[in-house]
Design a protein around this nucleic acid. Structure first.
Lengths: 122, 122
DNA sequence: CAGCATCCGAACGGATACTG
DNA sequence: CAGTATCCGTTCGGATGCTG
């Protein structure tokens, strides 16, 4: 009996890139390699613990790469792995849908905003 | 100051369709309207409490519709709303990616399986 | 059949302090 | 700068029992 059984494809996807932070991290890594501190500044709400933890898991699942520069002070760069690159299209669509969703909620009178859009319609 | 601030589009998306169960529920509703019991049987691992809770949230966010038939025994049908339909493409891709991911892990010697594929390559 | 309420353990996730 | 370890409150989520 397999140790892990999924009933539908999306379950496996969520298992790897699901959660509160992973999609955000991956979205930032879509366009560039980033150092730990850069990611931390790009995602101000995340705690240092969560950031490291999520990066470790993404690395373990082969989605991102972690390159350590042996120097003082330390320097570590994270980037999408070739396999992680297969997610960029989906990540892009997830970003766009979220932007549309916020617009929709604003039009609906909700007090919500989004700081960085990657698509400015019209 | 807005009560809800997102820094990037994908955050808003995750806020609405993120979590362990919502993507699975939505994937099932892509192709058909389903009754509560049908969903429950289609997702055997979910508890009744979680199923109801997630359905309520999806309904509240305008992703699905809930139609109650006034009869005994009760009958309730859930379906994607027109707005929810804007997610079908993304959901489809999430399913496919997960299926590929499982194949990749299997090829890597991991003891993992997926029961229902929607795309059987080759 | 569909749903609500409650209890309770597990996991998530933040704050802080410390290391190479 | 990057990362580890610990403490601890909050939320998640399962199990059970009950209602119309």
């Amino acid at each position: 009996m397999p140790e892990k059984t999924y009933h539908i494809g999306v379950e496996a996807t969520i298992d790897v890139i699901g959660g509160k932070w992973k999609p955000v991290i991956l979205c930032h890594l879509r366009h560039q390699t980033m150092r730990t501190g850069e990611l931390s500044r790009a995602i101000p709400q995340i705690s240092q613990k969560m950031l490291t933890q999520q990066l470790r898991e993404l690395e373990h699942d082969g989605i991102i790469t972690r390159q350590v520069f042996k120097q003082v002070p330390p320097k570590v760069e994270y980037a999408l792995s070739p396999y992680g690159e297969t997610l960029v299209q989906i990540l892009h669509e997830l970003c766009l849908w979220g932007e549309d969703n916020v617009e929709r909620r604003q039009a609906n009178g909700e007090d919500v905003q989004i700081l960085d859009r990657e698509n400015v319609p019209n």
